[in-house]
Amino acid sequence: MTQPTPSLNRRQVLAAAAGGAAVVGAPALFSGSALAQDKFPSRAITLIAPWPAGGSSDGVMRAIAESGSRALGVPVVVENKPGVGGTLGASAMVGAKPDGYTLTQLPLGIYRLPHMQNMPFHPVKDITHVVCLVGYTFAIACTPDSPFQTIQEMVAYAKANPGKLEYGHTGTGTTPHLAVEEFAEKAGIKLNPIPYKGSAELVPAILGGHIRVMSGTLDVAPHVQNGKLRLLATLGSQRSKAFPNVPTVKESGWDTISESPFGIGGPAGMDPAVVKVLHDGFRKTLEDPALIGALDKFYMPAIYMNTADYTAYAERTFAAEKATVERLGLAKKS
């Protein structure tokens, strides 16, 4: 594939003009048309979705990309890089040029995994937090033939069968994993966790009977509604509007709340003007009926934070996740 010619930024153009420098291959460098081409964005943007194609996260990221393409005036192309608890996007992105043309979704796991294992990036120092857009609603569900009807009955079953009740989650170190581990610790039970690469793998596994319990996002809602799964509890601070009769884990007696905003980021060192263009463009997607429809489809709430607020959130969350990981005894060895 022919690689696109890197565009010169405005500072390079002005510096070259001031020094009378010539740029090889750019005879019209100082023409009005060349300066117009320097406007960002002028070519396709890659947006990494760190999950398999077909799941709820992938579906929402594609809806964001389609809406973002219209708002920014250039194609926003989704590239899937699943694995390592949703952190492969950040790992792949931090080595890219900070020109705004390589971006990634920033799931909560990027603030947690560095405390659990060595990662090739620092989630605050190595990433520009552009904008937060959406959040997940997490839940615990089981197969309809499971020997329990409620979350309390599941706890009783797990106590009677320590270590024998398996549950699937969306990847080691992800929020659906650690939320259940924290809940299990507070409930005094031992479960057998089985990691999958996102919802696209997890949901077929439980529908196929390979596991009896799962912790994941509410994209399982259609399977709950048609009776193929039973929803035991949600993990947010409030009940889901889609399932008002299903209790939260907290109100069921265990003080565990897991809510997970996510947004879009790029490499450190991005031009603030480029960041603003990206922020404003993706901010407009929250007004797009197509994206709103996708969020409703996957039971995800819109959670907006501007660049400054999102950066502050990242700093707070990185510190808070360290405390959580240490409390659960999952911190990496120094």
Rank of each mutant, 00 (worst) to 15 (best):
Q3I: 11
P4F: 04
P6I: 07
V13T: 11
L14G: 08
A22Y: 07
L29E: 05
L29D: 07
S31L: 11
A34H: 14
A36E: 14
D38P: 04
K39R: 15
K39L: 13
P41V: 08
R43K: 14
T46E: 13
L47I: 13
P50N: 09
W51Q: 10
P52S: 12
A53W: 05
G55Y: 02
D58I: 06
M61K: 04
R62M: 12
I64V: 15
S69V: 07
R70K: 15
A71E: 14
G73K: 10
G73C: 06
V74G: 06
N80Q: 12
G86M: 07
G86S: 13
G89F: 01
M93N: 05
V94Q: 06
D99L: 08
Y101W: 11
L103P: 02
P107Y: 13
G109Y: 02
Y111M: 12
Y111K: 09
L113D: 00
F121H: 10
H122T: 04
H122R: 10
D126R: 08
H129E: 10
H129P: 07
V131C: 03
V131E: 00
T137W: 00
T137M: 14
F138G: 00
A141W: 01
T143A: 13
T143C: 10
P144L: 14
D145V: 11
Q149I: 08
E153W: 04
M154P: 02
M154E: 01
V155G: 01
A156F: 03
A158V: 04
A160H: 09
P162G: 09
P162K: 12
P162L: 09
G171P: 01
T172V: 14
P176H: 04
A179R: 03
F183Q: 04
F183W: 15
F183E: 01
G188L: 12
G188Y: 11
I189G: 03
K190W: 05
K190H: 12
N192D: 13
Y196I: 00
S199D: 03
E201Y: 15
E201W: 08
P204E: 05
A205H: 00
I206H: 00
L207K: 09
H210W: 13
H210T: 09
I211P: 00
R212E: 10
P222W: 06
K228E: 15
L229C: 11
A233K: 03
A233V: 06
A233G: 06
T234D: 02
T234I: 06
L235S: 01
G236M: 02
R239Q: 11
A242K: 14
A242C: 10
F243H: 12
P247D: 05
P247R: 04
G253D: 06
T256I: 12
T256C: 05
T256G: 00
I257A: 09
S260C: 13
P261E: 04
G269V: 10
D271C: 05
L278H: 03
L278T: 00
R283V: 04
R283F: 09
R283C: 03
K284A: 15
T285L: 10
L286F: 10
L291T: 03
G293W: 03
F298T: 06
M300Q: 09
A302P: 15
I303P: 02
A308N: 12
D309V: 04
Y310S: 01
T311C: 06
A314I: 08
A314S: 13
R316H: 10
T317N: 14
A323C: 08
G329K: 12
K333I: 08
S334D: 14
